[in-house]
């Protein structure tokens, strides 16, 4: 397989996995916080989380997955699953925060509507999820964009290993370091293209379910 294609697919896969993990936790949390009205503490924590320094998250997971670390026995350091987990931590506050902000503006209206028509709390929550889908799309796109363009954590936890954990961003760094600026630029354009295509797909899919 062409190595550039391989790196691109790996970037896509690991970023999607990270976004998915973050969404599994972040979407319900964001909806829940939005529906019940998040307190100052919760909001501050989420907003601070949006600015988590990737290198710090990377170092944290390095120590966590290091053979001497608490989860060293899993042998996950310098593997894609470790990268996906670390990246999901970076995407999580973005996804939860965006969803929370979007859900908060709709939560009261949706709850009143569903309750007044005799619906249950669960139905109100599901309706809120459906009504927030544009926001969810934005949240997922933001999370994915942050993750696929991230270089600090993925370098520390993944190690930029050829045929194993090299992704588009680390490949750009590598080529730049080697002085292969043209190759680096091509990879950078690919990165932009992938981000664009994924955002586009998210928007198309997210809005198609609207009926």
């Amino acid at each position: 397989m062409n190595e550039v294609l391989e790196i691109t697919l790996r970037s896509l896969a690991v970023s999607s996995a990270a976004t998915l993990i973050a969404a599994v936790f972040g979407l319900p949390l964001g909806l829940w916080l939005g529906a019940r009205g998040a307190g100052r503490l919760a909001r501050s924590l989420l907003y601070a989380g949006m600015g988590l320094p990737p290198v710090v998250v990377g170092l944290f997971f390095y120590f966590l997955f290091s053979r001497n670390g608490p989860l060293g026995g899993l042998g996950l350091l310098y593997t894609l699953p470790a990268v996906a987990v670390a990246e999901s931590v970076l995407a999580f506050p973005l996804i939860a925060g965006f969803t929370m902000a979007g859900a908060a503006s709709r939560a009261e209206g949706v709850r009143r509507l569903v309750k007044s028509l005799g619906g249950t709390e669960t139905q109100a929550f599901l309706t809120l999820l459906a009504e927030s889908r544009r926001v969810v799309v934005a949240a997922l796109a933001a999370g994915f964009g942050a993750v696929i363009s991230e270089v600090g954590a993925v370098t520390i936890v993944g190690g930029d290993i050829r045929h194993a954990t090299r992704v588009l961003t680390t490949a750009v760094v590598l080529e730049t370091r080697k002085g292969e600026l043209e190759r680096a630029a091509v990879l950078g354009l690919l990165l932009l293209g992938v981000t664009l295509v994924v955002s586009g797909l998210l928007v198309v899919f997210g809005e198609r379910e609207a009926a």
Binding site: L9, A17, P81, H163, A164
Partner: peptide
């Protein structure tokens, strides 16, 4: 999409044997 992702992740080499 989810299945595709799972496949892609599984298809990644390098976990086959401890390197």
């Amino acid at each position: 999409l989810r299945w595709l992702l799972a496949l892609l992740l599984l298809a990644m080499p390098a976990w086959a044997r401890p390197p």
